[in-house]
Design a protein around this nucleic acid. Structure first.
Lengths: 291, 291
DNA sequence: CTCGACTGATACCGTGAGGGTATGGATCGG
DNA sequence: CCGATCCATACCCTCACGGTATCAGTCGAG
């Protein structure tokens, strides 16, 4: 069995995602017949049927599901390989750090000063991604270090270090009926409009759909929503909002993550700086959370 | 910047490992000129010099080092994708479990009976690999679950669960001067011939070179070597040998590992069985070890 | 210093894999 | 039964990949 080329996996992923040869071909910028041939050829080569196609629908077989899952990982690894080697080759080196808005738990500026105290430090480029995208950016090489959150983010495949754990609070407008309480329960919030985040199970609450923290805060200020968030977000975004602890909600852990088996000195230095800052921080990290 | 094909990465890895275009070409089964062109083309495409070549030597640039490292991971992921999807497609499904000889801590047979108690269980195929190869087998898809050992194996990129921790003992022939002791120190063993394992730092001891547990045991029985090993190996291999605890040596942890974000039900069932057996085992796992 | 051995790069050519267009065949809705 | 839709097949063409021959450095032996 000879080699499977990148192109073939890209084609397969396109068809598997679109579930339509024509649309996939358009997305790939080729015409439909070569795409059909390529998929058929791939199936013959693997000795496995990947797609069940009728003239009305295209569905994935179990082998196809597996390949879709694994091929995405493989293609991310390919992207990462070229991006990281390109970065290592430029004489303008930089260390890309990814976070979502407010995702650093307020530690980043201290970490940067600590990190940059070493005069040999490579400049940091801070990248701000959408919610829940940090892992993807790390996997495909757009970033080398990132701030992620347990249990929200998928940490598989990364080395991590815990920076701090935070209580979660219910973020409410000042005028809210619960705003004065010392603590609230999840039951208290049962009928409140909790916003829905991208990537969340769509079954849950029927609140408004949101894409970033700013939107949530805006909606809360307008009384259109209520959210349960780590308390640190209040200090950055919630100037006219109040936070009431929710003891039932699991604590959030801010972690720093980097790709498995990274050999980068810059990554190691940055992680060391982050650990130092976290250790000197008032609330020491409680305990390690296995990935 | 368009796509980088698998073939190009395979070619680059060959040259980077051989550090010689001619030898790499032979290994790849092609002639040298196309290989030179492919590498040059890859460099032009990435906009980065990967190799410094004189007519006497080929060396890697920093970008080349990075690409070698990342390309290996990417190619493993490609292999894993095709292997796993092929496995998922066969109507003869099986769950490949990898271990090194004696690497299951004596738990595997119990785990198998526990696992197979579920009549819907997919048959397990037990694969025995060389020492320290479990991670590679998991990464390139030859196995879906494996028994690995902290701190010996590289666990990055896997989900893991601790099964048990073991003291380490000095394995000695009965006639050894230390054989009667209740415990020994590392200092006691300083001048003993400790065998060298593949993948070990070659600086360390000057003992004989070995490839598997059987060889070590043989050498010990002959009085040609002494080894520090987890105590469970004695029950399987050391019928005429004795073990003396070495309190200084860090405990070994037997863990079960599987690829990040596996969606396989069979893997989940096997891990569940392993956890059950480990929990009912006399010596409960002491504590989780972060990857 | 010169010659030969060695190694990577270049020039040139032929073949075949990949992409395009046209069309067939199956399925579903009206 | 007809048209619409969608994937597969047939056929052709281009160019990228691989092969052979050769050039251009570099080092070592004599």
């Amino acid at each position: 069995m000879d080699r499977v080329e990148t192109r073939e996996l890209v084609y397969f992923v396109a068809v598997a995602e679109e579930r339509h040869f024509g649309h996939a071909a358009a997305r790939l910028g080729i015409s439909q017949p070569p795409l059909s041939r390529a998929i058929g050829q791939l199936e013959r080569r693997l000795g496995v049927i990947l797609l069940r196609r009728t003239s009305r629908s295209v569905t994935l077989t179990p082998a196809g599901e597996m390949l879709l899952h694994e091929a995405r990982k493989a293609l991310h690894a390919m992207d990462a390989a070229i991006r990281r080697s390109q970065r290592a080759g430029r004489e303008d080196p930089c260390l890309p750090v990814v976070m979502k808005p407010g995702g650093d738990g307020g530690l980043l500026s201290q970490i940067l000063t600590e990190y940059e105290a070493d005069s040999a430090a490579i400049p940091v480029e801070v990248l701000v991604c959408g919610i829940g995208e940090q892992a993807t950016w790390l996997r495909d090489g757009r970033a080398d270090v990132g701030f992620v959150h347990h249990p929200h983010d998928d940490l598989a495949g990364f080395d991590t270090e815990v920076l701090l754990t935070q209580r979660q609070v219910a973020v409410l407008p000042r005028s809210h009926r619960l705003a004065g309480h010392a603590a609230v329960t999840l039951d208290d919030l049962r009928d409140e409009p909790l916003p829905r985040w991208p990537g969340m199970h769509p079954d849950s609450t029927s609140g408004p759909e949101v894409r970033d923290i700013g939107q949530v805060m805006q909606l809360i200020a307008l009384g259109r929503a209520v959210a349960i968030l780590p308390e640190s977000v209040l200090s950055r975004f919630g100037h006219d909002l109040v936070g009431v602890p929710v003891p039932e909600a699991p604590s959030t852990t801010v972690m720093i993550a980097w790709p498995e088996r990274s050999h980068s000195l810059a990554v190691a230095a940055f992680v060391r700086a982050a650990s130092t800052v976290a250790a000197h921080h008032h609330s020491p990290a409680a305990f390690g959370v296995p990935a």
